[in-house]
Computed example of a mutant assay.
Amino acid sequence: MKKFENFVHNILKSKVKKTLVIVLTAVAFFASLMMFPTKLVLAKMLPGKSDNTYSIYVDTPTASSIEETKKVTSCITNILTKEKYVKNMSIFYGQGIPLDYAGLVKGASMKRTENVTEISVNLTDKHTRKEPSFLMTQRLRPIIDKECGHIISGSTIKLVEQPSGPPTLASIVVEVQGDNIKQSRELSVEVANILSNTKGLVDIDVMADDIYDTYKLIPNIDKVARSGLAIKQINNILYLAFEGMVIATKNSENHSDQIPIFLILSDKTKRLSDSSQDAIRSKLTSLNLMNQRGMMVPLSEVVDIKKVKSEPMIMHKDLKRMINVIAETDMVSQVYPLLDAREKMIEHFSKNYTVEKAGFSTYMFDLYLTDKQTGEKFLLRWDGEMKVT
């Protein structure tokens, strides 16, 4: 002990020795950091967590019907029922799983459309199960994708495990920020294609609604007045025929909230022979209303059909428009796929954009893109589990 004290005192007394120790410590520190990019040591931010549950997110293309979503979901549940470690499961059509820890930041509360489904899969106790949940999801992912991914073209199926640490949107997140929303959507698709071709990444998804054709049914006020009908009368029959509506509520001692009573004309009125304007007009012709003079008036005579593009959801962060592209890692660290994908993006986008790398900071993986023709600026900001941890 005395020798060690003398050794320390000798260093502290000499200015040269103190400087040498600081330099050697700094060199050792940076040399240890270089072990990760050089792959002398393989790093993993957080270990895999074996849990008694995991979730499956099903996203069919925007504007898909609930029947189409159910086809994909049924295929998945048929596969899961054959698993010996699956105890039971709960299916939530058109909404997120309530009280889901991982879903807190994954946007489950915003899911309110027919093209989404979340499945909560409950497993046998992890202490008596030979296969950890993270290995089970890794094994089932290609099976489910092969059997169910092609049923509805453009569907994405994500197997989501309970996070080992703080919940994040995904293991790897690329925020595509820019004022030109159309070009941002194109950039996000290119980013997703690069991530899809990066080894070690799965469940790639672009968190943006597809743009598709829709039809607006607009009551013609002049024709409605001349036909002896009321606007409210037409609106009600349109909702009853195509959507359905709540007409009353029921109280029950078993429920804290009122139970809505939902009414629809029939299941046939909601269905069209095809997605053309003629099919909608034919459906309107089959719906008749009685006016004040006792005459039956077909809806096609008083309702105009207007074809418009859908309005996709626009996401903002720090008052900037953005589109998230997410990906999960398949039993590998987030570091190496991120670095590989980033190099591919630099090479790919250099053809049409001036690419600038961010400086040494918490955003050091970010890429600043400037369109060579228009001068418009875009930002590819990296986020996800590695950023949080």
Rank of each mutant, 00 (worst) to 15 (best):
L201I: 06
Y85F: 11
I211E: 15
L367S: 09
V105E: 10
L201N: 07
E114I: 00
L287H: 02
K2H: 11
K126C: 00
L299T: 03
L289F: 06
L319C: 05
S282L: 05
M207T: 05
G178T: 03
M364N: 14
A28H: 00
P337T: 04
V308Y: 11
G48E: 04
G200R: 06
L24F: 13
P312F: 07
S227E: 13
G228S: 04
S14I: 02
I326N: 00
V308I: 11
D203C: 06
V189M: 02
H316T: 13
N180M: 01
F242R: 01
I264Q: 15
S164D: 03
F262H: 12
M45F: 08
L369M: 01
V58T: 04
K357W: 07
N220M: 00
D59Y: 05
L40W: 11
H348I: 01
S120G: 10
D125M: 03
K270F: 11
T69V: 06
I323E: 02
T285E: 14
R381Q: 12
H9S: 15
S273C: 02
L33P: 00
M290S: 09
S300T: 02
Q373N: 14
R139Y: 14
L99H: 12
V176H: 01
M207L: 15
K44N: 13
I172S: 04
L367P: 06
I280V: 15
C148M: 02
T374I: 01
G154A: 00
E301T: 08
F242A: 03
S65N: 08
V325K: 02
K158R: 14
I11E: 06
V173E: 13
A108P: 00
I237E: 08
L229P: 12
K87Y: 12
T137K: 07
I151M: 03
R141A: 08
I97L: 05
A327H: 01
Y57N: 09
A102N: 11
